[in-house]
């Protein structure tokens, strides 16, 4: 279905967005998608939602480290360095 010359419909376009953002679409699919996006505000919004999702995935979030795990690892570090209970 992807390889036909037909223009994309929205339902097909959304399936190409992830590869499009990673630059891994074939030339042909990229052209078809860009042509669709130029004419379709809804799919452009969808693409922006996808961009926002990926950007937020990589954003620094408040750390969710269990304080006990940190204590244990700090203790491990001190043992490793060989000074028992710190400085």
């Amino acid at each position: 279905m992807r390889l036909t010359m037909h223009p994309l419909v929205c339902q097909q376009a959304v399936e190409l967005m992830s590869d499009y953002l990673d630059g891994s679409l074939s030339r042909r699919d990229r052209r078809r998608l860009e042509k669709h996006l130029a004419a379709c505000a809804h799919c452009s919004t969808y693409l922006d939602q996808m961009r926002a999702t990926i950007a937020a995935s990589g954003a620094v979030r408040p750390d969710d480290l269990d304080p006990q795990a940190l204590d244990e690892l700090t203790e491990l570090f001190r043992q490793f360095r060989g000074d028992g209970d710190g400085t």
Binding site: V9, H42, C43, T45, Y46, D48, Q49, R51, A52, A56
Partner: peptide, 18 residues
């Protein structure tokens, strides 16, 4: 295969998502 209703933007600008 066309959207029945417009998807809502998550933010008014992508960089705001960060």
């Amino acid at each position: 295969g066309a959207w029945r209703a417009a998807p809502e933007p998550f933010t008014d600008a992508i960089d705001r998502a960060v």
